[in-house]
Amino acid sequence: MMEIVTIPPFERFYGDHAGEVLGYLRRLLGQCAEDAWQETFLRALRAYDRLEHGRHLRAWVFTIATRVAMDEFRAGDRVMPVEDLDGEPVELRQPAFRELEHLTGGLPPTERAAVVLRYGYDLPYAEIGDALGSSEEAARAAASSGVRRLRRTLEHHA
């Protein structure tokens, strides 16, 4: 029987994810991330009482954040490359990504989100697909295309 996971009070959900979602949006949007961060949590709160269970809340909020960020990209203004960040400390599990992360600002938005979600936040491709509004395969393709592009950029710089 599937375990029913109770939806935690919103305050706990917020406490668990507010920081890492801001970090994620900083990577995607640079210093313009704060408005997108607030919009992300307002959207989450608007939908929170309609959730059916408390599973996958982390993936869910990253999905919302990605959609908000994509809306910003589509609006086409004030996107600052990640290189412009003034050295926010970023904890990364993947050493290879740590070398490449500062270059993600040059990637197309979808590839950038896919690469950051996969290597920066360890989300599975199925959930990244949901976040990007596409499929698991498309997410995998976007991430690997993004990584290839990063490697070329790195070689070019070297």
Partner: peptide, 20 residues
Amino acid sequence: MNITPELDTRFRSAALAEGL
């Protein structure tokens, strides 16, 4: 990454103002 107190307060006020 830590949320600044200003950002945190701004979010909480917006959530209350919107009746959420």
